[in-house]
Simulated assay, not measured.
Amino acid sequence: MRWVPLLLKTLRLPLLAALTVTVVSGCGFQLRGTSPVPAALQPLAIDCPESLPARFCESVREQLSLGGIELQPIETADYQLKLRNYSKDRRASAITAQASAAEYVLRHSVTLELFTSNQVPLIAATELTSSETYRYDETNVLAKQREEEELQQQLGDQLAQQVIFRLVPITQERIDAALKAHSANEKPSESP
């Protein structure tokens, strides 16, 4: 019986580590930089036209690639992610006593759609938005311009993350259900 305390002491750290891993994975924790996009969406093509910011398109591609999603040209992919209508907006949200802007709101938006290679919609056109507010100081114009540029980049990255998270619920079961519903709607109705 003297070996029981020694055994418990020896196994304490591995048991604690196993318990920690179980709890952390059970709560949905995921390492930063990994994609939560299901493997059911492979191979995937991204239709991100040149009219959209290149940094935004690259961020979406990079996040998908880091998550192990195989990206292919539109002609050979089973699924197509279409990104359209990227817009940026900057509006004054607070005014000083001298009638100049004291605070601005930056807003970026993009429209996302997801189709199968047969053009069956899996996600209808959905607008995603991201916004940030920053204070403007007329006495420190250069620093505030740099801050705005950094916020603009962050908003694009946040929007790319939103695109990724919109793909998360698309499992094989949902794809099969959408294909079944689409084929049921395509069948001609029989008249008596």
Rank of each mutant, 00 (worst) to 15 (best):
153 Q>V: 11
63 Q>R: 14
144 K>P: 04
105 V>P: 00
189 S>Q: 13
1 M>L: 14
178 A>V: 02
33 G>N: 11
160 A>L: 09
122 L>N: 01
29 F>V: 06
3 W>M: 12
60 V>I: 13
5 P>R: 08
153 Q>W: 02
174 R>G: 05
120 V>P: 00
56 F>P: 03
170 I>R: 05
174 R>D: 04
56 F>N: 06
85 N>A: 15
117 S>R: 02
54 A>E: 12
17 A>M: 04
132 E>Y: 01
119 Q>N: 11
12 R>I: 12
163 V>F: 02
137 D>V: 07
172 Q>C: 10
164 I>P: 03
49 P>S: 15
22 T>M: 05
50 E>T: 15
96 T>W: 00
59 S>P: 01
101 A>S: 07
76 T>V: 11
49 P>Q: 14
124 A>I: 07
74 I>A: 13
13 L>H: 00
10 T>R: 13
156 G>V: 07
37 V>A: 06
5 P>L: 10
71 L>T: 03
129 T>N: 00
122 L>M: 07
72 Q>L: 12
71 L>Q: 00
27 C>F: 09
142 L>M: 15
45 A>D: 03
185 N>T: 03
192 P>C: 09
106 L>M: 09
168 V>L: 05
115 F>L: 08
27 C>A: 10
86 Y>K: 14
44 L>H: 04
146 R>C: 12
182 H>N: 04
118 N>R: 08
176 D>Y: 10
125 A>Y: 02
67 G>N: 06
35 S>I: 12
151 L>M: 08
142 L>Y: 14
109 S>F: 02
139 T>R: 11
102 A>L: 08
15 L>K: 07
187 K>M: 12
162 Q>R: 08
174 R>N: 06
137 D>M: 04
127 E>D: 03
183 S>H: 05
75 E>T: 11
22 T>D: 00
126 T>L: 01
58 E>S: 10
98 Q>T: 15
161 Q>C: 09
85 N>M: 14
91 R>S: 15
95 I>S: 09
104 Y>K: 00
5 P>W: 07
90 R>A: 03
101 A>Y: 00
103 E>P: 03
151 L>F: 03
22 T>R: 04
18 A>R: 05
160 A>E: 03
95 I>W: 09
156 G>K: 03
91 R>Q: 15
180 K>R: 11
13 L>G: 01
78 D>Y: 01
187 K>Q: 12
31 L>V: 12
29 F>H: 07
116 T>Y: 00
159 L>R: 01
149 E>I: 14
44 L>G: 04
116 T>W: 01
29 F>L: 09
17 A>L: 05
33 G>T: 11
56 F>I: 14
3 W>F: 13
148 E>Y: 02
116 T>C: 01
19 L>G: 09
28 G>F: 08
62 E>Y: 15
147 E>R: 02
109 S>M: 06
42 Q>W: 05
98 Q>R: 11
43 P>K: 06
5 P>F: 09
165 F>M: 15
173 E>V: 13
118 N>Q: 07
74 I>H: 09
47 D>P: 09
43 P>C: 08
112 L>W: 02
89 D>Y: 10
131 S>W: 00
37 V>S: 02
49 P>L: 14
90 R>P: 00
21 V>Y: 01
11 L>Y: 07
136 Y>Q: 00
